[in-house]
Design a protein around this nucleic acid. Structure first.
Lengths: 329, 329
DNA sequence: CTTAGCACTGAAGAAAAAAGAGTGCTAACG
DNA sequence: CGTTAGCACTCTTTTTTCTTCAGTGCTAAG
């Protein structure tokens, strides 16, 4: 691809990102300083290379997924960010009391506002984390709160009504035993370990040990299934994009965003920024997912921006890079 | 309204709920056992009374908001529920370990599936609840989890990074002081009480008391602002309804569902079932909100079903009544 | 009061026509 | 030989016209 073609691709991608309208040859004569006929020639060459597409035989050109990809990889320059936005984000990180994951969530929320795309923060799948601590906090004589702390710093609490025939002291005692024998166990193994390590031990000292046992099993079960380490920002921002004007498309995308099985596939292990355009996104041919994993101070996860393929890539990438630089400190 | 008119309204409402198509006079001759001309006469009378509407001069009739209202108040009979569904709901409540609010959330999720409407569970606004307990759980030497328990049984946890120059013991000490002096304080007053009751006390014993003070203020602040006691079931079910085929309508409704300020207005204080049809719903002229408050064992809140005005009122009301009966036990 | 009959209405759909944006190709130009 | 003006052609979009049809309101008779 020669430099004029690159310039041409750049202008087409940027114009289409801006207006969501196919770009014709005449519209670019000012930018390229050559006649529309020349531009047409170059365009048809870019089309043969697979970087451009036509919506019909005599329409203007639209970037293909490959076109966006080339743009992202070779042409795009980091975007100057709005000072005000930067400041907002920086303020969040400079609030040193905030846990990293909370700070990230707040930031992604703001980024959703800035960009009008949807953002997702995905805590690392709890299967791989280990039990760090289990606390029982009595609320009254019939209720306690079970607090499970996991190695990645994630905390989950659940209110429990104590079964009849059991008293708070017994529940607390059981939690002590669990803490003694199960700390460090991967969350996914807790259920089986409970049966062999804990059940026999409490059987010896608690009358209604079956109730207590199943009570704690429930706590862990729920925790394992939990989708709660998914955070969304600007869930409906997608609707603002002109390409999602068909109800079916909206249904499709919103439906996928509701489906935890699909969303969790976004999870990334790469601390670099990865961009999945169109079909690659696994959402829709017109959707792009930009994602990046983070890891710091024992917390890890993935952050992602979901938007149309017609995305302001420069802005999004620059924003994520900014977040990355903040995380690293 | 005479009894034939009631019967007519009933048939029109039920037919429209079923098919989402305006109902013409001929379609009802079998049901009413009179000629289409007679039905037309009655229809135009019902229209004058404000219970029916036409989409255009020569179209069939559609129930107006008032028509639905009359149907709900005077005509509708409780609906026989599917035994399988009942069983599912009952199982949840019979799981005695579940906190009430968790049980309700699960139930509403199931009801969303059954009905294809959206459900909402709204914890009572924390302004009116009092602080019951504050726990600090050390995670490591720089991190703790602050756990705030509120009188309604709601628990919120937040991970905090301890400011430099402060140690865990000081944080724990502060939490003990807060527990000593602030328990029973309405959540909305905690912030001001912190300043006058706690700040002076910790100033005496902690060097970096300013940091510790603002740290705890942050915990409570976040808690007060928190939207987290809103639970949604079947958020996108609305999209399945044929009346929401226009993108603008979807945007409008989904947007409102994302806006905490609007959603929290659903909050109800009436333990009876209230139905807000059309404009009254505050969502859209084609939306109905059915809501009811609950209160038991110190927990309280509102549950609501949001769907089209063309809603299966009998089913929804019967389901909510069922939930109510379960809560009362 | 009920009903058959019929003219009338307005939406929805199909078909045809007109307008417009943009292309590809050819031939001329420096 | 790359660049450009010119022009026929293609396909979408918009507008217009026509047709169909479900359903109404009204009238007059039972």
């Amino acid at each position: 691809m020669n430099s004029r073609q690159e310039k041409l691709l750049k202008e087409i991608v940027e114009s289409y990102i801006k207006d969501a309208r196919p770009v014709g040859s005449k519209a670019l004569v000012n930018k390229l300083k050559v006649s529309s006929a020349t531009i047409r020639n170059e365009m048809s060459e870019l089309e043969e290379l697979g970087f451009l597409e036509k919506t019909h035989t005599s329409s203007g050109r639209v970037p293909s997924s490959a076109g966006y990809k080339y743009y992202v990889d070779n042409i795009m320059k980091p975007k100057e960010l709005n000072g005000e936005d930067i400041l907002k984000l920086q303020t969040i990180f400079s609030n040193s009391e905030l846990a990293l994951s909370d700070a990230i969530k707040e930031c992604m929320n703001i980024i959703s506002d800035i960009t009008n795309y949807t953002s997702i923060v995905l805590g690392k799948d709890s299967d791989w984390n280990t039990l760090k601590q289990l606390n029982i906090i009595p609320i009254d004589e019939r209720k306690v709160v079970a607090l499970v702390v996991v190695s990645n710093g994630h905390v989950e609490n659940k209110q429990i009504v104590i079964p009849v025939g059991v008293n708070v002291a017994e529940v607390v005692k059981t939690s002590e035993i669990i803490n003694k024998y199960l700390i460090g166990t991967p969350i996914k193994d807790v259920t089986s370990k409970m049966e062999f390590e804990i059940k026999p031990r409490i059987a010896a000292i608690i009358k209604e040990y079956e109730s207590v046992y199943s009570m704690f099993q429930n706590v862990f079960n729920e925790f394992t299934e939990k989708n709660s380490n998914v955070f969304f920002g600007g869930r409906t921002n997608m609707l603002k994009q002109p390409e999602f004007e068909s109800v079916d498309k909206i249904k499709n995308i919103m439906g996928k965003l509701e489906d935890y099985e699909i969303v969790k596939k976004i999870e990334s292990n790469d601390e670099g920024i990865n961009i999945y355009i169109g079909e690659e996104s696994e959402f829709d041919k017109d959707v792009t997912v930009v994602k990046m994993s983070y890891q710091a101070g024992g917390e890890e996860g993935t952050i992602a921006i979901i938007g149309p393929t017609r995305m302001e890539y420069d802005k999004v990438v620059t924003l994520l890079n900014f977040i990355k630089s903040q995380i690293e400190r």
